[in-house]
Every structure is written in C-alpha cells, then in structure tokens.
Design a protein around this nucleic acid. Sequence first.
DNA 1: CAGTGAGCGAGCTTCCGCTTGACTT
Length: 615
Amino acid sequence: MSKNLVIVESPAKAKTIEGYLGKDFKVVSSYGHVRDLPKGDKAIDIANGFRPTYEVTADKKEVIKNLRKLAKEAETIYLASDDDREGEAISWHLKEALKLKDDFTKRIVFREITKSAIQKALENPRNIDEDLVYAQQARRILDRLVGYELSPVLWKKIKRGLSAGRVQSVAVRLVVEREREVEQFNVQSFFKISAIFDIDGKELKAELPKRFDTEAEAQAFLESCKGADFTIESLDKKPGKRSPAAPFTTSTLQQEASRKLSFSVAQTMTVAQRLYEAGKISYMRTDSVNLSDEAMNGAKNEISAAYGSEYSHPRKFKTKSQSAQEAHEAIRPTDFSAHTAGKDYNEKRLYELIWKRTIASQMADAELEKTTVSIGISTSNERLVATGEVIVFEGFLKVYIESTDDEDNGDEAKGMLPPLSIGQSLNLDNIKARQGFTRPPARYTEASLVKKLEEMGIGRPSTYAPTISTIQKREYVIKENREGNDRQYTELILKNDNIESHSLTEVTGAEKSKLFPTNIAMVVNDFLVDHFPNVIDYSFTANVEEEFDQIAQGSQHWDVMIQNFYGKFHQTVEETEQIDRREVGASRELGTDPETGKPVIARLGKFGPLVQIGE
DNA sequence: CAGTGAGCGAGCTTCCGCTTGACTT
C-alpha cells in the first residue's frame, strides 16, 4: 500500500514520474478533464448567476471509480495536473468528484518532467488557486453560451447541423476572407532585369534592383545597354550570421512537419503521440520553447561528442506569444544520444525532425560572409547588383535548416562569387528582361492557419488539430489541390547587341493541399459578421482573455464578467428571430418558368440547396 | 384504389479544452 497518491493528467507522464519516486508513491492519471457541463440546457442556470452543474463525463466514470478507491487507501493525495488554467480546474474537479478532504490534499505543480523538478514540487505544495479555477469556469461557460446559442440560430436561419463558436468561426472567417482577397486581387505585370557575365568561363549573375512597369521601358533599358561597358564599381564584404530557430512547440512542429514531411496537422499529432507514449519525446501539446537545464546539458554533451565543442552554444529561448501558458517544456527528444527513434517510417522521420531542431537550437550561429557587387553601366545611370554568400562557419546549419512558407524560391541559392576586383571590366553574356506578375496572398494550408490562429491567441495546442478537423467536417472548408492555368509571359534577351523577344508559357495558380471555403461558409460567415461582429471579431478572444486574467488575479468576479457579455449577446440572439430566412444567404434567380411565368429561384433550404418556382 | 404530397409534431443537431483508446474505413 502506497502512502502517497499523485494524480497527473497523462498516463505516460504518470509512468515516468513513478520511476522517479520511491515505493511510497503511487502515480496515476486522470486522463485530462474528468467533469464537464452536461449537454442539455440545464447545464447553466442563467437566472442564478450562471451557476454551472457539472457531471462526470461518461468516459471518465471508470477513471473516477478507480481514483476514488486509490484515494481512500492513501494518506496524502497530491493533485499534480498541469500548471495552467485548465490544469488548476482539473485539480478542483478531481477534489470535488473524489470528495477529497483539505487536510489530506495538496496541490503541486512542475513544468518539466525531471526528477529534481518533481522533488522540488513535492517539497512546495500549495492549495488550489480558486481564482484561477473561476477563470477557467468563465472560459468554459462563455464558450458554451456562445456555441450553444449561436449554433441554433444557424439551424433556424440557414441549415440544420451547422455550428459556430469562438474559435471555429474565426478560423472559417480567416479562410473566407483570404479567398475573397485572392478573388479580388488585381494582378500587375512588371519586368525584372537580370544579367549574366562570363568571368573566365564562370558565371556571374547580377540583377537590376528596380523593376519596370511596362515592356516598352524594359525594351528601352535593354536598348540602352547595347554596346555598353560593364565595370565593377564597388565590392562590399560584410560578415553576417544566422541563428537557429527555437525548439518546437505544437504549432511550429505542425508547420515544419507539413512543409518538410507533408503531414496533415492531425497526422503530426498522432505520430507525435506514439513517440511520446514510447518515451522518445517530451509532451507534444505545448506552447513553450523552454528546455529544462537537464535537457540543455544533454544537448550540449551530444553536440560536443558528435560535432565538437565549438559547435555547442547553449541558449534559452523566450516565447513571443502573449497567450502562452507554458505548462510544459518545448517538444524535445528525451535522450539526445538517440539520433533516430520510432517504429515506422513516419515516426522515424518526425523524430529526426524533432532531434535536429532541438539540437540545432543549442548550437552556435552560422557565420557568413556576404558580398555585394555593384556593376556600373557606361551608357546608363543604373547599376546592376550581384550578391554572394559564403559560409565561414557552419554552426547549426550542420544539422538543420528551417523551411519557410514562401513557395516562391525567390532569389536562387546565393553561392560563392568568382574572384573579382574593383575596376574590373566584365564580359557580358546576356541581359534578360523577364515579365513577372504580382501575386495574391497565399491561401491557407492547415498548418499556416494554425500558425495564424496561434498568433492571434485563438485556440490551444490541444485544440489546433481538432479545430482544423471540425471546420472540414462541417463542410465549411475543403482541403484540395487545384490545377493551375497557363499564362503567357514575355522575355526579352539582349545578346551580342541583338534583342530578341520570346513569348513563353508558365503555369499559374496551381494549389496543393490548400483550404478553400464552401458556399455555406460564405453565407454563415457573412451572417455572423452582420449580426455578431463582436463575437467573430479577431480580437474577441484576446479581449476576453484579458478579463480571464483579471478573474485569475481576483480583481474581477467571473459571473459579473459573464453577465456583462451575455446581456447584449443574448439580446442579439433574440433579435435574429425576426430575420426571414430567405433574406439570409445566396438566393439566386435562375430564370422564369415558361408555364407559369413565375420566377425560378435557387436558395438554401433547411436541408440543403433547393430550387423553387414562385415565391 | 394506390400513390403522392401537404401539414404536423417529435427528436436531434451545437461549444472549447484536457486526455487516450475504441471504434470504423
């Protein structure tokens, strides 16, 4: 019989911690939240200060039964759920559901799963922070009120089965508005000049920093270069450096796995979960970029052993996110000496990504030498510019290069320049003026939408993947590939004092695994923007988060905060009753019925699209 | 008389955040 019972949220964590503690401790898991508001409308007593009724969730009945039995046998119970708002609420719900007595119940917190951190936590127990629990309650009740009052409005006025909520509706709004930006984008053509010089058989590529708006201007520039002398006017060498990115959080892992491994966000989480359960990586739902001292040491030792100590550079990263709660470490390998881990191909690839990213974050900067060459044109005041980049010391680039969202490779890999000197006269091979086109903002991928949501402080690491699934399941958004269209462009080439014009073809607008809004998403979004601009506002979450913080600090009552929001919100919900559902959404006249002469109208009915004759 | 369709009523849909594992495809 163990004297002490420790309850954490995750079973894998429980197993690890039990290994750190002696046989006087039994460590078990609650499997996350154990109680929640029931589904019906009895969950919140709106008339009585929004008093909530909680129930043990169906899938947690068995868990609570077991925990109750273990709690009875223990002398002291340590509630060790995560050190954040939700974790505090879990501890409180456990205390209530297990009917734990204050005298035997202690609340402990730690933000890394290391022996020293756990022991320190056990030496510094505290009580449950009631204000923090109230803040969570406010969050939960607000989400329920918004979701369960808004969704039925959509059923009545648009279509059954639809949903709306603080997080998902903003996600849909982003996709809808981006699509409209793309549709309305005004494509502009321009001409970009690049020159190639022959330096003793080696190529030197230079570009004109300015672009021409018209073919005539580009043509005129090329004309002016006929017979010109090209001379190096200046050579500017500057040292530069690049620093590694921070270790992975949930959202950055999802982004990199999407770009480098083509994983969906859900797939990334499933594979990471398996690595976590196998003890290969730390917890995968986190917003923290922090590494424990123990991890930093492990990385340092591994880097020194594998690459040499000059490659080691321990660093602590700070989160840029306002909304981060940082209850865990960053996502990292548990054992840095394991360069590979995982049972199948995908696990191995994801682990390798995590290993490299974490190791790189603790490595030295890469040192570069950047050279800028300015090339004068005897017949013009314009100057061509060539740039080169030489890596003097690889540093972290030895193991990891972060990718970017830009599909446009932009400037090609800058390499080493051939030996050059000031005053040197250059031998022109050709100058090209290539027509280019401005591009609309990129449509979202699953991962870039997650990134955007995180930047706006909307959603949490545990909900990013489910949110992305929900908006697809509701058919607000579809992920798909689209084929591009052919587009003509013009290229002018000056070679041997002769200008040739070519008309060429490129593919434009091709999309791969991008998020597109459906018609229903447009209708729902416009309806919500029209009638509930406050709730669907991009800063709504940030605003209510500020109030949750005040509740957590004890400077605001949770029920007052909810009342302030709900009064006006509920009134708006009632006002929508008056709206004629035919006014909402995309009804369209198709023509007139030849028999009756009545108009034929396509519109959205309760069960989907329909066509009707007459009003 | 069989089949169609209007009209009615009952029951259902839905949120976010914390965890896995039990399901099906």
